[in-house]
Design a protein around this nucleic acid. Structure first.
Lengths: 323, 323
DNA sequence: CTGAAAGCGCTTACAG
DNA sequence: CTGAAAGCGCTTACAG
């Protein structure tokens, strides 16, 4: 429980001045401090278990090498991998990463985060349109590329086209779209890509991302004459609701109805039958976004990125019963 | 993009000394600074949009008023609410809360967190036995109360007894337990409570917390003569695996087999039929744990806490077919 | 009731 | 090649 050692303590033990310690430990000794002195400093630092005081360094430098990851909710299954990817890149470059769960129901006003302690922000704008982080550099994930900030995106349009292609190849013509009732770029794009793939023949219903709401919406689509032979859902949770609607109507999946999801979260394989869906490279997205943010911090202007997903065909899709 | 205002700027505008600004803004002016001076200081600070530099304060004070929440994985559905509860209490007391997702597969060695920037730790020891955070004050959640640190727990034994009582009341006598193959207090307690409730008549199988593994374990329990009439699962994900096993064997839930879960996560209502399970007060747990940690930081020794869960009866349980 | 001063631990010109 | 000094912005005794 003794006092933390400071650079002054290291200096005393190494028999040099405090400034020499600082220079050596910062790796700026090349050609300025002779090798044996460097040696002695490193040796002393190691022996004392010295670690520089961050508050002092930050005060002196006026920067913190810390970046903020804003996530809409801690429990979104995609955010674990996004964090992991971002954290690894950050660590490699000597940056800290602070996670800031942004309550879905609260504005930025409630934010506890002190912007002064942060140098940049990684945000997933699924939160809504809010992208106001003062004048901090920002990189947006899964957001409208038209935004002023660089965007690192999943290729959701491509994913949706893959689903549409899969369904079309199976012979489906009457498609129902259970869309997420969330005002976000990612869902707008899904809707547009699907509509483009089935021009004129698409029926749509929106629902909150919630099993019960999705069930209702799917029911509305299904419980009428000329019902769709396939339901394309904006995400896996919504697909779970579609399953419930099918069961309520006595429709077999995939015999009477094909269903697709989006995201490939745990649910996709917990459902019965397992769900055909799009797997998103979330960890890769996090890493790419952090790389872009560090570029931005370095004064460069990183290009936008779009990462392809992968169609995972499982047992929830099959040719329509009566074509 | 002009320079951040400092307390010196505020002093100049208010026409007082920098130390007076500091005293007033720290709320320590009572009886030391006359009201109109205080007024002027607050006024000036507001006008300039002054906010104290945290690095300077931390350096001066040698403390950070920041606490760490260690969670095993960001995607565990319980951690969102735990964070929310803890963050609110922390904010009320002027503390920051940093989330540190602790990769399941990495030791503390990989930890990026600089312990010096942190005053205390809130940990959910589901991670494993690891509770070494240097000599930082720690409060453990959902962990063995025999640990040296204060523990804030769900009453998992009580929850399991509620499930056992529910099943016994329905008439079940042959119970199968699909246990989590995780070495953690919370699961040991679940197993013991269940065994106590059905002495001698319990069959058990362990599985990773994973749908496919749980399916295998449930299959082993079910696919033999004298099979259990009810499967008690250590958590909702495992229950999803049990559903799959039942379906594979052509067993109807709850007609031929009752199934119960634990946690009441999204899955519980996504499954068909919806799952009887135990709802845990996760947000309350987070708040109680943070309160305890702040007590500990204040030099007091907070008592352990055990929070009751709630039995949520849904359609996955019914009387056994042939008693 | 208010101000001048010291000092937290660091980094970085600047002297020598 | 190395050291003495300034200063980042605060808080807190201490003087007056």
């Amino acid at each position: 429980m003794s006092k933390r050692p400071t650079s002054r303590d290291v200096a005393r033990v190494a028999g040099v001045s405090q400034s020499t310690v600082s220079i050596v430990l910062a790796g700026k000794a090349e050609g300025r401090v002779k090798p044996e002195t460097r040696q002695a400093v490193h040796e002393a630092a190691r022996r004392l278990g010295y670690r520089p005081n961050l508050a002092a360094r930050n005060l002196r430098l006026g920067r913190t090498r810390t970046v903020l990851l804003v996530v809409p909710t801690l429990t979104g299954p995609v955010f674990g991998p996004i964090y992991a990817g971002a954290a690894e890149v950050a660590a490699d470059r000597g940056f800290g990463l602070i996670v800031h769960p942004w309550p879905d129901d609260a504005g930025p006003a409630r934010s506890q985060v002190d912007t002064q302690a942060i140098e940049g922000v990684l945000a997933s704008s699924i939160v809504g349109g809010v992208t106001d982080f003062g004048d901090l550099p920002v990189v947006l994930m899964d957001s409208d590329p038209a935004a002023p900030a660089p965007t690192i995106n999943f290729d959701v349009a491509g994913g949706m086209r893959a689903i549409a292609g899969h369904l079309a190849a199976l012979g489906h013509r009457r498609i129902g779209h259970v869309a997420a009732a969330v005002d976000a770029w990612t869902f707008r794009v899904r809707g547009e890509a699907l509509a483009d793939a089935f021009p004129g023949s698409l029926v749509r219903r929106t629902a909150a991302i919630d099993v019960a709401a999705a069930r209702q919406a799917a029911l509305a689509l299904l419980d009428r004459p000329g019902r769709p032979s396939a339901l394309v859902c904006d995400d896996d949770v919504i697909a779970a609701g579609a399953y419930k609607a099918a069961r309520a109507l006595g429709l077999d999946i995939p015999g009477d109805l094909s269903v697709t999801g989006f995201d490939d979260v745990l649910l996709a394989t917990a459902l019965e039958p397992e769900l055909t869906t799009i797997r998103l490279p979330a960890e890769h997205l996090g890493a790419a976004a952090m790389t872009a943010l560090l570029e931005l911090l370095g004064g460069r202007r990183p290009p936008g990125v779009s990462l392809p997903g992968e169609l995972i065909v499982r047992r929830s899709t099959a040719p329509p019963a009566s074509p």
